[in-house]
Nucleic acid binder design. Structure first.
Lengths: 149, 149
DNA sequence: GATCCCGTAACCGTTGCATTGACGGGTTTT
DNA sequence: AAAACCCGTCAATGCAACGGTTACGGGATC
């Protein structure tokens, strides 16, 4: 299993807001065109990002605005906002180990700490990346493309 | 989405081999009893672990043996052996971004490096944990339980 | 009022997963 | 040699999450 594509779609959305926010009306239909998915999928994700307090979405007129500076929004914030993994747990545990077995009884105690360390390592790295980093890369990439065109 | 429970089941298997390998016949039925799942699920995972060269499984007589010292088998080895994530990629990318859009065209270039950094952070931590660590914890845990009983 | 656009509910097809039954083929025991 | 035991694998099933899609209600703008 992999982390839901909602996460990369959300990052794609932020990239589009950065690239087109000044020149185009960034609507769910517009975004769906760039990402090649259905507008409802976008609206669902926008709704999650807005519930998490990362953006505001203008109803009627359309338009997306960040509520904080790009440097203050981390990949982790986005990751959490879109519920990229269920229950916030990266690892899926088998549900009902046998309590009558010494190992089955203690398997959670045995593994939880180590699995948590793995998850923490991943989340720490997610927190290091911000939308500002993304914007910088994007600006560089787009100016290159313009020169080529 | 979460990482397949095959991974935690595999670790559970290793714990059982450690705890019962000397005193019981550790068969897929025995393991299924501790994990509370179906023997076929166990056999499937045993098959993957054996394909990866981590264990040998005795046919007929039943019995599981590690091919290396526990200290030389990392969580990462197990993680890879059971195909915990598809294609080895932690993140699921949306399939077909629009090539006619400057952002859609470059979204992979934009994100791949940063997502890889996150995945690397996670895998590095997985590589730090070995079955020997697990065995040590297990021995401690089991002796405590004995004292209580 | 017309138009544009978001928010949400409902339904569906796909996919990966775990469960289960069945059967073939080794290995050991008697 | 026969029986008992156990792994390896295939096939069928039920389930849950995901993404795609249609539809409709409700703000915002012109």
């Amino acid at each position: 299993m992999q982390i839901a594509s909602r996460f990369t779609i959300a990052l794609h959305i932020f990239a589009c807001v950065r690239a087109f926010g000044q020149t185009h009306k960034v609507t769910s239909d517009f975004l769906a065109g760039s990402i090649r998915t259905n507008p409802v999928v976008i609206r669902k994700i926008l709704s999650q990002l807005s519930s998490a307090g990362l953006i505001t979405v203008a109803r009627g007129t359309g338009g997306i605005a960040l509520t904080k500076a790009p440097g203050e929004i981390t990949f982790y914030d986005v990751y959490k906002a879109v519920d990229a993994v269920e229950n916030g747990g990266l690892f899926h545990f088998h549900e009902s180990p046998n309590p009558d077995c010494p190992v089955g009884r203690s398997i959670h105690t045995l593994l939880d700490g180590r699995l948590q360390a793995v998850q923490d390592a991943m989340e720490t790295e997610l927190k290091r990346q911000t939308l500002a980093d993304l914007d910088a890369d994007l600006d560089r990439l787009l100016s290159q493309t313009e020169n080529q065109a």
